[in-house]
Nucleic acid binder design. Structure first.
Length: 588
RNA sequence: GCGCCAGUAGCUCAGCUGGAUAGAGCAACAGCCUUCUAAGCUGUGGGUCAGAGGUUCGAGUCCUCUCUGGCGCACCA
């Protein structure tokens, strides 16, 4: 039997339709687009879902909430929907508690049921709106750090979930391969060359001080060592200032381009090792080459929100809630980073993306107002911060904790500070989980010891372990899991026991969770949910009456029910872990 | 000084667009392995949700103020 109400919607949505329709039948005053809210009950014994709609409507209908609830309750019981419920009750100040009948499970489950098929039927792939999700976007001037790792993993998980929810998402990494930072990078290499040739010259302050520069330099010279480096005459540089300057210029130019390419590749490798892939790496330099930055200055000037002062060109961002107006073209004629970034975001819109989501680091939040302001000035009114058309998520910083104390980040080698160090130290499953498990907006304490612990203390293994156990049950019982994707008619009677049904209905919240995350973009809820699901399963597993191998001999039909519960749980765990980019091993 | 983020159990944090008695893990204590994976389970203790006002049927959640911590306030990116 199929039923589109339940097979094409999440359970929440289906119940909302039922309660809303019924309420509108009862009260003619209600607006046509009234949608009753459906929540989870605080306790399973009250039912699976509850609606606070009666309380919300009390003022509008000028009736006591319990009376409204009573009317709706009776109406549902007398309607065609009655068969979906084991009970409908009024509780507390006017909650409508809904206890679903096991029959609903049959509506959910078609012969080819699986969690993925269920998700497919609820979330059909939409072509609109097209979403551009930009994250990481670190400067290609060094290895990726821990905050970038967090942004990478969290952003990747959100994108996976958005896609599973049927949304059209593209992942993009903006490469700042232009401007001062890149010049400084080249200069750092020039000085390192001098040091390498025996000149004990100090690096200027604006240079990158990290030791990694030296390693990259060696790699670059190994593959190609140009004449002007090979024939370097240190003594003549020391004595001849003009020649010295010439060398710095030449070496900077030579190395900056090659170093950016090299470092970008290194970053890409780190990301790949972390299971983070991008659809596109967008280079800032292409915006300059295509003169899009220049054109943007003209376009902004046309808005009338631009003025000249002290030889520089300003964008009047204070008109858009910014602290001060911002320079877009310097007095020497060079564009600022902001102008290029405006051009970049404008380009996103021109490429046909209706929604733009960025993840930025904690030190960039002050930047939001000016960029949002520029997009508004460019007549992209959807950039208004009340809508979600342009949103910036700020990922907060990370403290690595060892021996109960935070590790102080320093430039010294051997310090644990880059993404690569983390990959070498902590298994990817564990570090991904730890990054995703906390809300992006909170400062994260990353406990290295806990992440390394291979026991139940480490939540990621606890979740994987539940999945492995279920697979073990199928191995030991020599059953083929596929046969248990659907509850058989006969076996369903054995669901009538709290923990069994509770586990099933908790697993069936999965699509609702995906829907929530598509809205809130908070991937950590998936991590929390999976841990709770694993915990519920583990309790179920340890109950004496749920011992499956024993049950197979005693009561095969009841065993079928238990196997179906297990398989639904396993499919959900596997799908959820996959959305977090974490593996689901069948044996541990 | 201005802005952003945060303040929930000893520690790290959940708490879905305001909903019923505020939860989990770790740490502490007490039990449990002839049993499908003990990488586990059960139980106990632990709270002025930073503080004070306000909004309403109802506030950890929304508003205002205060306090504390982190970060940011360039013709750097």
């Amino acid at each position: 039997m199929t039923n589109t109400l339940f097979s094409k919607n999440t359970i929440k949505k289906a119940l909302s339709i039922i309660v809303s329709e019924t309420a509108k039948d009862c009260f003619a005053d209600l607006e046509a687009d009234f949608q009753a809210r459906i929540d989870y009950t605080p306790e399973f014994k009250l039912g699976q879902y509850a609606s606070p709609a009666a309380m919300e409507l009390a003022k509008f209908l000028k009736k006591p909430p319990r009376e409204i609830a009573q009317t709706v309750c009776e109406a549902i019981k007398g309607s065609k929907y009655a068969e979906y419920f084991e009970s409908v009750e009024i509780a507390g100040p006017g909650f409508l508690n809904l206890k679903l009948s096991v029959q609903v499970l049959q509506f959910l489950t078609s012969p080819d049921f699986s969690v993925q098929v269920y998700l497919d039927s609820i979330f059909t792939l939409k072509n609109e709106p097209r979403i551009l999700f930009e994250f990481v976007s670190a400067n290609p001037t060094g290895p990726l750090n821990i905050v970038s790792a967090r942004a990478a993993v969290t952003g990747d998980a959100i994108c996976r979930i958005l896609k599973r929810g049927g949304l059209n998402v593209q992942k993009e990494y903006y490469v700042n391969d232009f401007g001062n930072q890149v010049s400084n990078l080249g200069l750092s290499f020039a000085y390192r060359v001098l040091q390498k040739n025996g000149w004990e010259i100090a690096l200027p302050e604006n240079c990158y001080q990290g030791e990694y520069i030296l390693q990259v330099l060696n790699s670059l010279l190994e593959s190609d060592s140009p004449d002007f480096i090979q024939n370097l005459d240190i003594n003549s540089l020391k004595s001849n200032g003009e020649e010295f300057e010439k060398f710095l210029f030449k070496a900077s130019e030579y190395f900056s381009v090659r170093a950016v390419d090299f470092l970008l590749e290194t970053q890409q490798q780190d990301l790949f090792d972390f299971r983070v892939e991008f659809d596109r790496f967008f280079r800032e330099s292409t915006l300059h080459e295509d003169e899009k930055v220049q054109q943007m200055a003209i376009k902004l000037a046309e808005t009338g929100k631009v003025y000249e002062k002290d030889g520089a060109t300003y964008f009047a961002s204070t008109e858009y809630n910014d602290d001060k107006d911002r320079v877009i073209v310097r007095s020497d004629g060079r564009p600022t980073y902001l102008l290029a970034d405006i051009a970049y975001h404008y380009d996103k819109i021109k490429r046909g993306f209706q929604k733009i989501i960025d993840i930025w680091g904690p030190d960039h939040h002050g930047y939001i107002a000016r960029l949002r302001g520029a997009l508004l000035a460019l007549n992209f009114p959807e950039a208004d911060n009340t809508s979600q058309e342009f949103s910036v998520l700020i990922v907060q910083q990370v403290n690595l904790i060892e021996d109960g104390k935070p590790i102080v980040m320093s430039k010294r080698l051997g310090q644990f500070q880059t993404m690569k160090d983390l990959i070498e130290k902590i298994p990817v499953d564990a570090s991904r989980y730890f990054f995703i498990t906390r809300a992006m907006s909170t400062h994260l304490d990353f406990d290295l010891e806990l992440a390394l612990t291979q026991s139940s203390k480490n939540p990621v293994y606890y979740i994987q372990y539940a999945f492995a156990r279920i697979n073990s049950i199928f191995r030991e019982s020599s059953r083929d899991a596929d046969g248990y994707a659907v509850f058989s008619q006969d076996s369903m009677q054995y669901l009538n026991q709290n923990l069994r049904a509770e586990l099933v209905y908790f697993a069936l919240r999965f699509p609702e969770l995906i829907e929530d995350i598509c809205q809130s973009r908070e991937a950590h809820r998936m991590a929390t949910y999976l841990h709770e699901l694993a915990s519920l399963f583990t309790k179920f597993y340890h109950e004496d009456e749920n011992r499956i191998l024993k049950k197979i001999n005693e009561n095969p039909v009841e065993a079928d029910c238990l196997l179906s519960i297990c398989w639904l749980t396993a499919m959900t765990l596997e799908a959820g872990l996959d959305l977090l980019g974490i593996t689901a091993p069948r044996e541990m």
